[in-house]
């Protein structure tokens, strides 16, 4: 395999490993740091893809990733958490150990699933990694009890989708990427607003309190 291919495999694998770690971390600070590193790896992956395909726009995309996902979103997330006074300790429905186990199973599922699509090769690993990141992100969405955890889970899933795009087509059309960025921003704004309101109303960001809204 070419050095670029090896590099891409490493980056993608690193991203998945970080996702695996994030699935069982219960401290907001560590989650955010892991997310930053994962996004940085994603940016590097994009640059590697840019070298492979020679499309200039992927450099711009990598730069946007660094700007938004490595710097903007994490820091503002931390600031929002600090301002609203939410607790640093996050909660989940299952023990961290259980979550890790489930994440490992999802890794196997991702590998098998990607096998059905592509033969073994560099692209295959990146694809498998992207599947795994998406699945782990979904796991986080389902298992976390508070909004910050869910927000991070959503961002991780978004990362995974991005990686999927990079793996399969070596970059999605520019417009889609811009679109997905805006989508992210919107979600981010929503999360901050909601956590603010939830903290004000119920003095906690646990989503359990939302159950009172049902019939």
């Amino acid at each position: 395999m070419t050095p670029i291919a090896i590099a891409m495999t490493v980056f993608a694998g690193g991203m998945f490993f970080l996702a695996f770690l994030m699935s069982s971390r219960m401290r907001l600070g560590s989650l955010v740091t892991a997310f930053r590193v994962q996004s940085a790896l994603l940016a590097l992956l994009a640059i590697a893809a840019a070298f492979v395909t020679g499309e200039f726009q992927l450099f711009i995309v990598a730069g946007l990733i660094v700007l938004i996902k490595v710097w903007f979103i994490p820091s503002f997330l931390l600031r929002a958490a600090r301002v609203s006074g939410a607790s640093e300790r996050l909660q989940s429905y299952a023990r961290p150990a259980t979550l890790s186990f489930v994440a490992a199973c999802l890794a196997i599922v991702a590998l098998v699933g990607a096998r059905g699509l592509l033969p073994v090769g560099a692209d295959y690993f990146v694809l498998a990694a992207s599947f795994g990141i998406v699945l782990v992100g979904l796991l986080m969405l389902v298992s976390r009890k508070d909004m910050f955890g869910e927000g991070i889970g959503f961002f991780v899933m978004e990362n995974g989708i991005f990686t999927f795009g990079l793996a399969l087509t070596h970059g999605m059309p520019f417009l889609f990427e811009i679109g997905s960025f805006f989508d992210l921003l919107a979600f981010f704004i929503l999360i901050t607003v909601f956590t603010h309101r939830a903290q004000d109303e119920n003095a906690s960001v646990a989503t359990d309190d939302l159950r009172t809204l049902t019939d």
């Binding site: 429905y93 979904l138 969405l141 389902v142 298992s143 976390r144 009890k145 869910e150 989503t207 359990d208 939302l210 159950r211 009172t212 809204l213 049902t214």
Partner: peptide
């Protein structure tokens, strides 16, 4: 039952 995670 109002639990968001179940819906997800």
């Amino acid at each position: 039952n109002g639990v968001i995670q179940l819906y997800l």
